[in-house]
């Protein structure tokens, strides 16, 4: 097996020493969807020591065009992504200690889940969880390699690489009311692989101790647009997530989403913190092609989505009818709102 990584070691910036560092690396992958599949496969093939991959979802037919770890049989068996990912990744490289955990990552469990890893690879599908992970990684003092993509467009931003660099909270002045998601505007697999590749290249540089400047970068594979912005000047001196007096607001209950199962109504209520403002008309327009029976008025947007009646109120509450399962409801919210 000694020749297994020879072509990677031949790559001069990594070399035999770099391979030893890769072997020691313990990586937390937040999400086992498209970016998680692609990034995990690259890292496991590269021979990292340990991978923990977490996800709350099961595999569906609509995942197969881009989530490269999964097969038709996984859909038929209704396997959780984390379970199927662990199985496939272990088959790819049995040297790597792979653990798949079926879990909804929240402010209650995020620190416990991430503790003991050297870095976090972002493969989540929504901004709430990214800000939660940003806070958790900063608190634990480990880097967070952000990545996101929809359509033919993706962006990456490695956080916690240098002292004095901005975190995700610094550069997001206000929380977006809604971001584009794969369930509202679709996605093609090339941008998944491209985005994951950029994340993993940065991860490999980090764990082999190659200095690099963390930049916010984007690419659109359909238009050819690309951007690379050095955001160092956006570091905020008083940032609640990364300054000396950080309070990690997204780890606290006040800034996190609240969930409640409404007894006897087969409905879950999700409530966002007041810092997240909702714009109902843009939201309604963005989901028009993905939902049915859409109505909106100054107070709410209502629609049907995957057999669930959904109502979003302007004050930041969403009712998801037809389920008592909080994870299902959060999943639907992430798909529609990002």
């Amino acid at each position: 097996m000694s020749e297994r990584y020879s072509r990677q070691e031949l790559f001069a910036p990594i070399g035999e020493d770099g391979q030893i560092q890769i072997r020691k690396a313990s990586i937390f992958i937040l999400g086992a969807g498209a970016l998680g599949s692609s990034g995990a496969e690259m890292l496991v093939r590269a021979g990292v020591g340990r991978v923990t991959i977490v996800d709350r979802d099961i595999i569906e037919w609509t995942n197969l065009h881009r989530q490269q770890l999964y097969t038709e049989q996984d859909v038929i068996e209704q396997l959780p992504k984390a379970v199927a990912a662990e199985k496939r990744l272990t088959a790819i490289n049995s040297d790597v200690a792979v653990t798949g955990i079926v879990v909804d990552v929240t402010q209650q469990n995020v620190l416990d889940l991430m503790t003991g890893h050297d870095l976090v690879l972002d493969a989540t599908d929504n901004i709430e969880t990214r800000l939660l992970a940003n806070d958790a990684a900063l608190k634990l003092g480990i880097p967070f390699f952000m990545g996101a993509c929809v359509g033919s467009y993706g962006l990456t931003f490695p956080i916690g690489i240098q002292d004095n660099q901005p975190c995700l909270h610094c550069i997001l002045e206000t929380l977006p009311s809604q971001t584009l998601t794969c369930d509202t505007v679709g996605v093609i697999s090339p941008i998944v692989v491209t985005t994951a590749a950029r994340q993993v290249a940065d991860v490999l540089k980090y764990i082999t101790r190659i200095p690099f400047e963390p930049k916010l970068e984007s690419a659109d594979l359909w238009t050819g647009d690309r951007a690379s912005i050095g955001v160092a000047s956006m570091k905020k001196a008083g940032c609640p997530s990364c300054s000396e007096n950080a309070v990690y607001p997204f780890l606290s209950a006040r800034e996190s989403m609240k969930t409640a199962v409404l007894c006897g109504r087969d409905t879950v209520q999700l409530s966002w913190p007041t810092s997240r403002k909702f714009e109902l008309i843009p939201f309604a327009e963005s989901i028009r092609g993905s939902v049915s029976k859409l109505i909106h008025n100054p107070h709410l947007v209502a629609c049907e989505y995957n057999g669930h009646r959904i109502v979003l109120f302007r004050d930041g509450r969403m009712l998801v009818h037809g389920t008592k399962d909080v994870v299902t409801a959060r999943n639907i919210a992430a798909r529609l709102l990002g």
Binding site: L35, D122, A148, G154, L155, L172, T181
Partner: peptide, 10 residues
């Protein structure tokens, strides 16, 4: 001009 916008998916 370079513009980067944030998206949700992954």
């Amino acid at each position: 001009i370079e513009i980067i916008h944030f998206v949700g998916g992954g």
